[in-house]
Design a protein around this nucleic acid. Structure first.
Length: 958
RNA sequence: GGGCGCGUAGCUCAGCGGGAGAGCACCUCGUUGACAUCGAGGGGGUCACAGGUUCGAUCCCUGUCGCGCCCA
C-alpha cells in the first residue's frame, strides 16, 4: 500500500537501512564472483570535511555509474574512504585545543598531540561519511579506508623507500614556498597568486668608488623592487647586457645602502630593460628568479629571515660576512622585526639617507598560502623532492596514446600543459600529522632510508662501525637499546605531503602491497570522476604512481565534471555567504530531488549554476512518479509472472512498450557516454510527458470499464512500464524508486540488484539501423542486440501503434487548443465531425472515441463527407476534423485564428520555395534533404487550401 | 602575457550544418474518478557583434566586444 503523500525523509532512512542489511553494495558478492568487475575509487574527502555541493555532484555522478553497472550485472566496487588532510586536520585540532584553553601543540609534544588527533578523528572524523550515505552513495562501506590507516601507511613507506632507492626521491637545499604562519614548506600547487595593489620602490645603490650624491645620477644606480626589506640579503645588482644605459657598469660594484656590503653588478637576461629602472636587485635567498640568477653568477645566498618571517640578523654569518665596522647598530635595531614592519622601517631609513628615489603604485601577483592565507616566503631549506619530471613521462605517454582518456577531451590540453612543465614536487612538510618520512640521520647528517627503524638503524650502525666512528661493540649495544642510540641516530621529523598518499589511492586501498588479490581483480579501475580543480594535485600524481608501481594506468577514463556555483555564477565561499548546503536541500526536498537536479544540470564542459528552485521542480517530479504509482495501485495493476509485453495486442499497450524501449535506449546510451543531463532529461520526459500525460490517460477508459481481456492486458502493461520506469530512474533517484519497488508488488529482491532493461531497436534512426546492419557482418553479435533480435532482447518496435497514438495525441491537442482560444468552458461538450475521413481514420476514431471524448471534452463524434457550415476546421495528419460550433464560437476570434494559420502556411511555402527555386540547392544538397523540402511544401500547400476553405465556410456561417 | 571556456526566451540552461528547445517565472482557464508538489492552453528570442566558408550557419572559420576560470 502506497502512502498518500510522498515523504522523502521517512523513506530515505528506511531504504538506507534495507540496503545496508542486504549488503547490497558489497563488492565480490557471491552472486557476482563470475561477473566482470566495475571499479571506481572515490576521491577521498578530507576527514575534516563536511558535504558541500561539489561533493554532492561528484558522488551523485559516481553513484549513477555504480548503480547503473550494478544493475547491468557487474561486480561493482565503489571504494570509499577519507583523506587525513595533513594541514587541515592539524589546524582543526589545534583550534580545538585553543578553544578549550588546553596546552598548545608544542607544549604538548608530538606524541601526545598525535594521540589527540586520532581521538578527534575517532569522534568527529565520520561526519562526511554519514553525509555521503545520506546522499545515497552506494559505496562498499565495509571497505572504507583512511590514508593513515596501517595498510595505506605501509604502501606509503614502501613507495617512498623504493623511489628513494631509484633516485626518484631526493633531498635538496633550494628555495621552497615557506608558510611563515604554519611553519612548513608547501608545494607550488598550494600557493595561490593573488593580485595585490602594492608599490614599486626605486632605490639608489651607490657605485663603489664614488661619493654618493642623491642629486648626481652618475654616483649611483637605481634598482626597482616590490620587496625593499629583502635588500638586506642582496648579493648583486643585475642589468641586461643589451641595455646600453648600464652595459659599462657590468663588472663594477655597488655598496649596499644601510648595510655597506660590496656587491657586484652582473649582466643577465633576467633583467628586463622595460621594467622598472631596468636594473634589478638580486636576493638569491628570497626570490625564485633571483635564486636562478645567483646560481648563474655564483652569488652567495644570504637568508635574512627566520621561519616566522622575522628579520634574523644577529649571529647570521651569511649576513655579517664582509660587513664594515659599525654594522652592529643596524643589526641590533632590526633583528627580530616582523617582515612587514621591517619593510616600513627600512624604507624610512633609506629615505632618510636619500636612497629612495620614488615610489610607484604597482599591482602585482603575490603568493599566498591556500590554507593559511598569509604571504608565502621563498625560503632556503632542505626538503625532500620527487623527481616529477621523470615520473611524468609514462603518465604523459599514457594519455597521448589514449590508454587514458579525459572526458571532455579538452582537459587533456590542461594536463599536458602542466605535465610538460612540471617542477620537482616538494613532498616534505614540517607538520606532525601525516606519514613521517622513513629517513634516519647519523651524527654527520648522513641519511639512511628504510622501511623500518630496525633496518635503517642496522644500516646506519654498520656504516659507522665501518667508518670507525663507533666500535662494533657500541654498535651492537645501540642496536639493542634505543635509549643508547638517542642523539646518535635520529629520525627525520617531517611528514609527507597529504597528496603523496592519495596518489597511491587506486591501489593502496585494494590491499597493495600486503595482499594483491583485489589489486588483480579491481585494478585498473574503470573511471575516475572528479573536478578539474584537482587534476594537478591528484589526477596527475595518481597517473605517475600508477604507471610506476602498477605498470598500468589507474583508470582508462577520467570524467571531469563542472564546478557548482551559485545561481549567479559566483564560486561558493563562506566569506561571500553564498554557500548552498546540500544537506539543507536534502532536508527540504529529499536526496533524490537533489541528485536528479545535479544530474540534469551536469552538461559536459559547463559549470553548474544552481538555483534551489530547480531542486523544488525535481521534487515535484518525484511526487509525480509517486502519484502515478498510486494510480496504478488503485487500479489493481499488477504484473503477472507470465506476462510478455511483446505479445500485447492493444494498440496503446504496444505503443507504450515501444516508447519505453525508446526511453531505455536513450537513458542507457546517455549514461554510457557520461551524458548525465541527457540521461536525466530523457527519463524525465518519458515519465512525465509520455507515461503520465498520455499513457495513463489513454488507459483510463479501459481500466474504468468492464472486465475484459483488454483491461487485463492494460493493467499488466501499466505495471510493466512502471517497473521499467523504476529501473531507469533508480541510478538517479535511488530512494524513492527502491521504496516504490518494494511497495508496488511482492518482490524477490532489491531494485538496486535488479537487472537493467536491455536496449532494443526502438529509438534508432534509419541511419543508425543501416549502420548497424552494415557493421553486423564483421561482428555478428552486435546486430541482434542493437536491433532488438527477439532471440536476444524483446523487440518492441511498432511504427503502426506509434502512428495511431500519434493521431490521437494530435487530435486531442488540437481540439484543446481551439477550445482554449475560443474560450469554451470545460463544461461545454462540443461535437466533432470527421469530414471525408479515410476508412483507417474512421476506425481509429471509433476505437478511441471514449478517450478522445474525455480528454478533449467532446460530445458526439460523427462522420460526414464535408464539414458543416460555420464549423471550426482543424487539420489532423492531413485530414479535416470539424468542430461545429455555430452559436458557441466567437466568429471574430475564429477568423483571427485562421488568418494566423494562413500566414504561417504561406510563410512556410515561401521559405521552402526560396530553397527549391535555388538551382544550387537542388544540385548540391543531399537528395533526402531536397525530398524533405518538397514534402514540406506539399504539406504546407494542403494546409493553406484547408484554411482557405475554412475561411469560406466561416463566411457562409455569418 | 599564455591557455581553456562562455555569451541562445525575464532567469537557469540544452541544442551545435538543413523548419529555434526545456525547466522555472509570467498570462488565461480549470474542484474532468493518481497528482493543485496538479491539469489544459498561451505570450515571449535579428541564437553578443562583424566578416568569411557553404546551395544553406545559432551551429564551422577569422576578427571584435563582454564575462568567467586556470597558469605565468
Amino acid at each position: 500500500m502506497i502512502e498518500k503523500n510522498y515523504q522523502p525523509a521517512d523513506i530515505e532512512v528506511r531504504i538506507a537501512a534495507a540496503w545496508e542489511a542486504a549488503g547490497a553494495f558489497k563488492a565480490g558478492r557471491a552472486d557476482r564472483v563470475d561477473a566482470e568487475p566495475y571499479t571506481i575509487v572515490i576521491p577521498p574527502p578530507n576527514v575534516t570535511g563536511s558535504l558541500h555541493m561539489g561533493h554532492a555532484l561528484n558522488n551523485t555522478l559516481q553513484d549513477i555509474l555504480c548503480r547503473f553497472e550494478r544493475m547491468r550485472g557487474r561486480d561493482v566496487l565503489w571504494q570509499p574512504g577519507t583523506d587525513h588532510a595533513g594541514i587541515a586536520t592539524q589546524m582543526v585540532v589545534e583550534r580545538q585545543l585553543m578553544e578549550r584553553k588546553e596546552p598548545g601543540r608544542r607544549d604538548m609534544g608530538r606524541e601526545k598531540f598525535l594521540e589527540r588527533v586520532w581521538q578527534w578523528k575517532a569522534e568527529s572524523g565520520g561526519v562526511i561519511v554519514n553525509q555521503l550515505k545520506r546522499l545515497g552513495a552506494s559505496c562498499d562501506w565495509s571497505r572504507e579506508r583512511f590514508t593513515m590507516d596501517e595498510g595505506l601507511s605501509r604502501a606509503v613507506v614502501k613507495v617512498f623507500v623504493q623511489l628513494h632507492r631509484e633516485g626518484l626521491i631526493y633531498k635538496d637545499k633550494r628555495l621552497v614556498n615557506w608558510d611563515p604562519k604554519l611553519l612548513t614548506a608547501i608545494s607550488d600547487l598550494e600557493v595561490q597568486q593573488i593580485e595585490v595593489k602594492g608599490s614599486l620602490w626605486h632605490l639608489r645603490y651607490p657605485l663603489e668608488g664614488k661619493v654618493f650624491d642623491p642629486e648626481d645620477p652618475t654616483t649611483f644606480i637605481v634598482v626597482a623592487t616590490t620587496r625593499p626589506e629583502t635588500m638586506l640579503g642582496d648579493s648583486a645588482v643585475a642589468v641586461n647586457p643589451e641595455d646600453e644605459r648600464y652595459v659599462a657598469l657590468i663588472g663594477k660594484h655597488v655598496i649596499l645602502p644601510l648595510v655597506g656590503r660590496k656587491i657586484p653588478i652582473v649582466g643577465d637576461d633576467y633583467s628586463d630593460p622595460e621594467k622598472g629602472s631596468g636594473a634589478v636587485k638580486i636576493t638569491p635567498a628570497h626570490d625564485f628568479n633571483d635564486f636562478e640568477v645567483g646560481r648563474r653568477h655564483n652569488l652567495p645566498q644570504i637568508s635574512i629571515l627566520d621561519i616566522e618571517g622575522r628579520l634574523a640578523l644577529d649571529g647570521n654569518e651569511d649576513y655579517l660576512r664582509g660587513l664594515p665596522e659599525g654594522s652592529a647598530q643596524l643589526v641590533e635595531e632590526l633583528h627580530g622585526m616582523e617582515r612587514f614592519a621591517a619593510r616600513k622601517s627600512i624604507v624610512a631609513r633609506l629615505e632618510d639617507f636619500g636612497f629612495l628615489e620614488k615610489i610607484e603604485p604597482n599591482t602585482h601577483a603575490v603568493p599566498h598560502g591556500d590554507r593559511s592565507g598569509v604571504v608565502i616566503e621563498p625560503y632556503l631549506t632542505d626538503q625532500w623532492y620527487v623527481d616529477a619530471k621523470t615520473m611524468a613521462q609514462p603518465a604523459i605517454a599514457a594519455v597521448r596514446s589514449g590508454a587514458t582518456e579525459f572526458v571532455p577531451k579538452n582537459w587533456e590540453k590542461t594536463y599536458f600543459e602542466w605535465m610538460d612543465n612540471i617542477q620537482p614536487w616538494c613532498i616534505s612538510r614540517q607538520l606532525w600529522w601525516g606519514h613521517q618520512i622513513p629517513a634516519w640521520y647519523g651524527p654527520d647528517g648522513k641519511v639512511f632510508v628504510a622501511e623500518t627503524e630496525e633496518e635503517a638503524v642496522g644500516h646506519a650502525l654498520g656504516y659507522y662501525v665501518e667508518q670507525e666512528v663507533i666500535t662494533a661493540e657500541q654498535g651492537h649495544d645501540m642496536a639493542l637499546d634505543p635509549a643508547l642510540r638517542e642523539g646518535f641516530i635520529t629520525r627525520d621529523e617531517d611528514v609527507l605531503d597529504t597528496w603523496f598518499s592519495s596518489a597511491l589511492w587506486p591501489f593502496s586501498t585494494l590491499g597493495w602491497p600486503d595482499d594483491n588479490t583485489d589489486v588483480e581483480r579491481y585494478y585498473p579501475t574503470n573511471v575516475l570522476v572528479t573536478g578539474f580543480d584537482i587534476i594537478f594535485f591528484w589526477v596527475a600524481r595518481m597517473m605517475m604512481m600508477g604507471m610506476h608501481f602498477m605498470k598500468d594506468v589507474p583508470f582508462p577514463t577520467i570524467y571531469i565534471h563542472a564546478l557548482v556555483r551559485d545561481e549567479k555564477g559566483a564560486k561558493m565561499s563562506k566569506s561571500k555567504g553564498n554557500v548552498i548546503d546540500p544537506l539543507h536541500l536534502i532536508d527540504d526536498y529529499g536526496a533524490d530531488a537533489l541528485r536528479f537536479t545535479l544530474s540534469a544540470m551536469a552538461a559536459q564542459g559547463r559549470d553548474i549554476k544552481l538555483a534551489p528552485q530547480r531542486v523544488e521542480g525535481y521534487r515535484n517530479f518525484a511526487t509525480k512518479l509517486w502519484n502515478a504509482c498510486r494510480f496504478a495501485e488503485m487500479n489493481e495493476c499488477a504484473l503477472p509472472a507470465d506476462f510478455d509485453p511483446t505479445k500485447a495486442t492493444e494498440v496503446v499497450n504496444r505503443w507504450i512498450a515501444h516508447e519505453t524501449a525508446r526511453a531505455t535506449r536513450e537513458v542507457t546510451e546517455a549514461i554510457e557516454a557520461y551524458r548525465f543531463n541527457d540521461a536525466a532529461g530523457a527519463a524525465y520526459r518519458f515519465v512525465w510527458n509520455v507515461y503520465c500525460d498520455w499513457y495513463l490517460e489513454l488507459a483510463k477508459p479501459v481500466m474504468m470499464g468492464e472486465d475484459s481481456p483488454a483491461k487485463t492486458e492494460t493493467r499488466a502493461m501499466v505495471a510493466w512500464a512502471r517497473d521499467e520506469i523504476l529501473k531507469l530512474l533508480h541510478p538517479f533517484m535511488p530512494f524513492i524508486t527502491e521504496e516504490l519497488w518494494a511497495v508496488t508488488a511482492a518482490r524477490t529482491g532489491l531494485l538496486a540488484l535488479t537487472p537493467w532493461p536491455l536496449k532494443s531497436r526502438c529509438g534508432l534512426t534509419r541511419e543508425q539501423e543501416a549502420l548497424i546492419i552494415a557493421t553486423a557482418s564483421s561482428d555478428p553479435l552486435v546486430a541482434p542486440i542493437m536491433l532488438g533480435d527477439p532471440a536476444v532482447v524483446p523487440d518492441f518496435k511498432d511504427d503502426a501503434a506509434e502512428a495511431e497514438i500519434g493521431w490521437v495525441v494530435d487530435l486531442v491537442t488540437a481540439v484543446r487548443s481551439v477550445r482554449a482560444e475560443m474560450n469554451i468552458t470545460p463544461a461545454t461538450l462540443t461535437p466533432l465531425v470527421l469530414a471525408g475521413a479515410s476508412a483507417e481514420t474512421q476506425a481509429r476514431a471509433l476505437r478511441w472515441s471514449d478517450v478522445v471524448k474525455r480528454l478533449a471534452r467532446l460530445g458526439d463524434i460523427s462522420f460526414a463527407d464535408r464539414s458543416p457550415d460555420g464549423a471550426v476546421q482543424l487539420l489532423i495528419r492531413g485530414e479535416v476534423v470539424a468542430l461545429p460550433l455555430k452559436g458557441v464560437i466567437d466568429l471574430g476570434a475564429e477568423q483571427t485564428r485562421l488568418e494566423k494559420e494562413l500566414a504561417k502556411a504561406e510563410a512556410d511555402i515561401k521559405r521552402v520555395d526560396a530553397k527549391l527555386s535555388n538551382e544550387k540547392f537542388v544540385a548540391n544538397a543531399p537528395e533526402e534533404i531536397v525530398e524533405e523540402e518538397k514534402e514540406k511544401r506539399a504539406e504546407a500547400v494542403a494546409r493553406k487550401e484547408k484554411v482557405l476553405e475554412a475561411m469560406q465556410r466561416l463566411k457562409g456561417a455569418v
